[in-house]
Structures are given as structure tokens and as C-alpha cells.
Design a protein around this nucleic acid. Structure first.
Lengths: 142, 142
DNA sequence: AAAATAAAGGACTTTTTTGTCCGTTATTAA
DNA sequence: TTAATAACGGACAAAAAAGTCCTTTATTTT
């Protein structure tokens, strides 16, 4: 449902989030820790910077970080940036004429489930994710 | 979440299901009606035949069809045959150490939602899908 | 000012998924 | 018994997703 890229993106954002604001981490460090391919990690982070979900600074001591306003972004913003929202819009069977008025046989159950995911993504902020990680002591590493 | 191939597979099975038992349809006819690439349709149907979800007959008047026992198969059987069950097993963020005991921040909401989908796929038979299509007059075409 | 550091950006490669082509096999009908 | 039909099977091709490499740009430290 989420692409590999998007899963990586969420993990990068979580990693940055559990470090204090403006604590910069290089793409290499993040990639190493999360065991995500390095060059790919850079690409993903750059995309998130472009979409204003992550902040960055060049040069020595630079790296990626989350500002206070970045931390207010939602999980959905990350998903939107990397994968887009097609999954939440189109019919689960790819039927273009399937809609609430003319639902395909899986439609009704499908949209209910999908809507729950959507709401969860929409209401959960990056900040909240890291709060939960810190509280539960979850190890992100992989 | 479902691959393109799997969506096609489900539509093929639905198409066969709304036609009466042992009413054979050629891959070309199915592909044409559902607007799925012809050669790809053949491949998918062959795979379903191999996994005993669809029946087939060679030669003139032959084609693909669903026997009574085929119609008892579940949506999940189709998904299992084409995509496998990875989606229902692995962590939504690809974290290998995420589990019920050590849940990642999205885990709990995620597995609840996923479980609902799983149950729906597991309990819904091909027969039931076509019953619903016939009752509601849904057009499969695309 | 020079050297070092790290993101930015573009072109490229690899792998997976999607999709095609074509010869073979089985079945039916004339 | 030959021609036609349609699934079967394997190899191939195209497109998309995942991942790499290398040069440039901005920033900091010496």
C-alpha cells in the first residue's frame, strides 16, 4: 500500500523527530542507522525538503532536521509527498466507474477500511509519532 | 496494496462468476470485455487455473470457467495466488522487529485495519461477489 | 583564501512489475 | 484426418520502481 520509498521516508522522519529540534543529522548517518541505502536516503530526504516536511543545512555541521513547524506536519503529508493520494481516491479494483453511487462488490467494506487509515494518517503528527516512540522505547533500527 | 495483476485477477474471476457455471469464456473475450491486455489476461488466468481457482478447457468451444467448487473459493485465495500474503504479515513500515510485543508507532492502528481487510477477504466467496454484482446490477466493464 | 563537509541535482543502472510474442498441445467439428 | 480453435508454456520487451554515481553549490572551519 505504501511504496518502499514511502516507508523509508516515514522512518527517516521518525528518526529525525526523536532527535531534538534543530539537531542536524547527515543523510549518511540516517541511512547507516536505519539500514536504508545511502544514496536513496539522500534522494528521499531532498524530496521531503522540497515539500517542506524536512529542513536542511549545507556544509560542515549541516544535515537534515525538523523545525518546530516541520514536526507539526502529519503522516499524511509524508505519504502525499512520496506516493500521492491515489490509493485513497481510486477504486480498490481499479474500476473507473466504481463510486459510492455505483459501488463495486468490494467497495463498501473497502472504503470504510481505507477511510480509517486516512483519518489516522491525517490526524497523527510527526511530533506525536516520536512522542510515542520515546514513551514506548521502540527501536527504529530495523 | 493489491498489485495491478491481482486487481485484474479479481475482475476476471468476477466476470466468470456472473456467468453460469461451466459457461466457458475465452481469454480474448474476457480481456476485451474487461479492457485488460489480452496476453496478460491469459497469463493471469493460467496462474489461477494452476492454483485451482479457475477451470479451463482447450479447443473449440473451450475457455475458462468456474466450477461449483471454484465458486466456493474466497477472495483471499485469489489474492494469495497472485500477490501472496506478505502484506498481511509484515510491518506496514517494513520494520522487521516490529511486532505486537514491540509495536512501531503505526502498528496498532495498522494491524486493526489490516485485520478487517483480511477477514473480509477470507469470508467473502467468489459466489457471494457475483451474487452482489447481480443484485446491484454493477457494471464490471471499466 | 583554501580545504573540508554536506546537501542539491542530474544522469545513469538495476530490479521488479507489467505486458507481449510465438510455438506447442489438446480438443472439437467438418 | 485435417482444419480450426483455444489453453499452455517459455522466452522476450517495455515501463516503473528502486537504487547509484558523480558533479555542483553552499557553508563552515582553519
Amino acid at each position: 500500500m505504501l511504496s518502499q520509498k514511502c516507508k523509508y521516508a516515514l522512518r527517516c522522519v521518525m528518526y529525525l523527530s526523536i532527535h531534538s529540534e534543530n539537531d542536524k543529522k547527515s543523510a549518511d548517518e540516517i541511512a547507516e542507522y536505519l539500514k536504508i541505502p545511502k544514496a536513496f536516503t539522500s534522494k528521499i530526504l531532498q524530496q521531503l525538503v522540497n515539500d517542506d516536511i524536512v529542513s536542511s543545512a549545507k556544509g560542515p555541521g549541516g544535515g537534515f532536521y525538523l523545525s518546530a513547524s516541520n514536526k507539526k506536519k502529519k503522516v499524511l503529508d509524508v505519504v502525499k509527498s512520496i506516493d500521492g493520494l491515489d490509493f485513497f481516491v481510486n477504486c480498490g479494483l481499479g474500476l473507473s466507474e466504481c463510486s459510492n453511487k455505483n459501488p463495486c462488490p468490494l467497495h463498501n467494506t473497502f472504503i470504510q477500511i481505507r477511510e480509517k487509515l486516512y483519518q489516522m494518517f491525517k490526524k497523527t503528527s510527526i511530533q506525536e509519532l516520536s512522542d510515542e516512540i520515546i514513551q514506548n522505547g521502540f527501536k527504529l533500527k530495523r
